[in-house]
């Protein structure tokens, strides 16, 4: 494994997570429970897809990768590196919100650490995206806190959404084997285990203030496989829909 390949492995995983969750967020457009939430999920979709594009562009410009649009839309399912959390259908609002909360805190922590990356092109990008993602976590924290205080049914639904999302969210930190070891040794980033620990500390503080019980890290089976190209049944239909227009004429100028 070369450093170049290890970097591509990491950046593809980050970008694919953002792209696929961006697509899921966009599915709330026009369907949000209140207008502000419709706008929030649509805005976050726009941010996520922009962030994915910026990461694909770094691969193209600095690591010899291909055109970002072609890379985003024309790969086979097994070549995507996204985790199972982002592939899940939106479900009800409790599930979408909890996924958004767990995912955005993980992203925030990853970018905080990547500001000091030895891979120079990531430093300015991480600094920029970190500032933008703060609005995502601000939004998530406010709703998690509010809905947990909104009565018995609301609280119970948030707890069951957390139970469902937590093992999936651990898949965000799937060990990256040889690629990860190399990136840690080269001081590109501190590694998945270290990020997971920082994330657990961060989400624990907010969840406990909302009186939610975080399932034990070792009592659940983390949903691994996505980083290796093994996906749930939900990804393929999403890819077909997402790439539908692009594939009608991949050479078109938009």
């Amino acid at each position: 494994m070369t450093k170049n390949n290890a970097l591509i492995y990491m950046l593809t995983a980050m970008a694919d997570d953002a792209l696929i969750l961006g697509h899921r967020n966009s599915e709330w457009t026009g369907l949000g429970p209140v207008m502000e939430e419709d706008i929030a999920f649509s805005s976050m979709a726009q941010d996520k897809i922009g962030h994915a594009w910026a990461l694909y562009r770094i691969q193209q410009e600095d690591l010899g990768g291909g055109d970002p649009d072609q890379f985003a839309f024309l790969r086979n399912e097994k070549d995507y590196r996204c985790c199972h959390l982002v592939e899940q259908p939106n479900g009800e609002y409790d599930f979408s919100l909890m996924r958004h909360f767990l995912f955005d805190h993980a992203e925030a922590i990853r970018y905080e650490q990547l500001q000091q990356s030895s891979f120079a092109p990531l430093q300015p990008l991480a600094r920029k995206l970190k500032g933008e993602i703060k609005y995502h976590t601000l939004h998530a924290n406010a709703w998690i806190t509010q809905l947990c205080r909104a009565g018995e049914e609301s609280y119970a639904r948030m707890q069951s959404a957390l139970n469902a999302c937590f093992p999936l969210a651990l898949g965000l930190f799937e060990p990256g084997g040889e690629a990860e070891d190399l990136l840690v040794a080269e001081k590109v980033y501190p590694g998945e285990k270290a990020l997971q620990q920082l994330w657990m500390d961060r989400i624990y503080a907010i969840l406990s203030a909302a009186a939610l019980n975080l399932p034990g890290e070792h009592a659940v089976q983390p949903a691994y496989g996505g980083r290796k190209g093994c996906h749930t049944v939900h990804l393929q239909p999403l890819l077909e829909e997402m790439g539908n227009v692009f594939r009608t004429d991949p050479a078109a100028t938009w």
Partner: peptide, 13 residues
Amino acid sequence: LRSPFGSTLCRAI
């Protein structure tokens, strides 16, 4: 603050 997201990415409501 009603929502950190508004009619464009740079605006809040």
